[in-house]
């Protein structure tokens, strides 16, 4: 198993922490992982993205230009990364704020309206966990229990009371992702 993922959106959406939780979940399942953020001026209020690789083998390049899965959370990232999905790969996106929807026919496209679902829960902060849940429904590369362990590792202990809420958000994501096209 070798899964190469880009998660891209606005700074503040929890893109980097979602990647970190995914990477930690991989470690909990004895996988090799890498997490490479975009950093610097583009993060300040602009786009943020992170490349996460989860693999049975040692990770070679942490920086890639094509991906098995792209998780896209705003229009700028759609413009930048729709073309970076490998043929036969997967694109998952949140329709919120998207004006030009993905058009590719050689990949499988899913949609999760995570911003809307997060607003329904009343805690918009769980947005990224809804997205992560949606992704794991399509690519169950790590078990849910290991994701929970990954969250435990990523969150300071004083925030561990939020774990049930995050677990609920993961499940909302799993239940609400839907297919847009068939490859």
């Amino acid at each position: 198993m070798n899964e190469e993922i880009i998660i891209a959106g606005f700074g503040g959406q929890g893109v980097l922490s979602m990647g970190k939780i995914l990477a930690y979940s991989g470690i909990m399942q004895d996988k090799e992982v890498s997490w490479m953020p975009s950093y610097g001026p583009e993060m300040r209020g602009g786009t943020a993205n992170v490349t996460v690789i989860i693999s049975d083998e040692k990770v070679s390049s942490p920086v890639l230009n094509e991906f098995d899965t792209a998780i896209i959370l705003n229009q700028q990232s759609m413009d930048k990364f729709e073309k970076s999905v490998k043929t036969g790969g997967i694109l998952i996106y949140d329709g919120n704020g998207i004006t030009r929807h993905p058009k590719r026919k050689d990949i499988t496209i899913y949609r999760i309206d995570a911003a809307e679902k997060a607003a329904e829960t009343g805690v918009t902060k769980v947005f990224n966990m809804i997205v992560l849940g949606a992704y794991l429904k399509i690519k169950p590369i790590v078990k849910l229990e290991n994701v929970i362990n990954g969250i435990k590792k990523s969150l300071p202990e004083r925030h561990h009371n939020l774990i049930p809420l995050n677990e609920k958000a993961l499940k909302i994501g799993m239940e609400n992702i839907y297919l847009v096209n068939i490859n």
Binding site: K20, V33, S34, W35, M36, V59, P62
Partner: peptide
Amino acid sequence: DGIIGQMMEK
């Protein structure tokens, strides 16, 4: 370099 400094691994 900036990659090795900023990336996370095991």
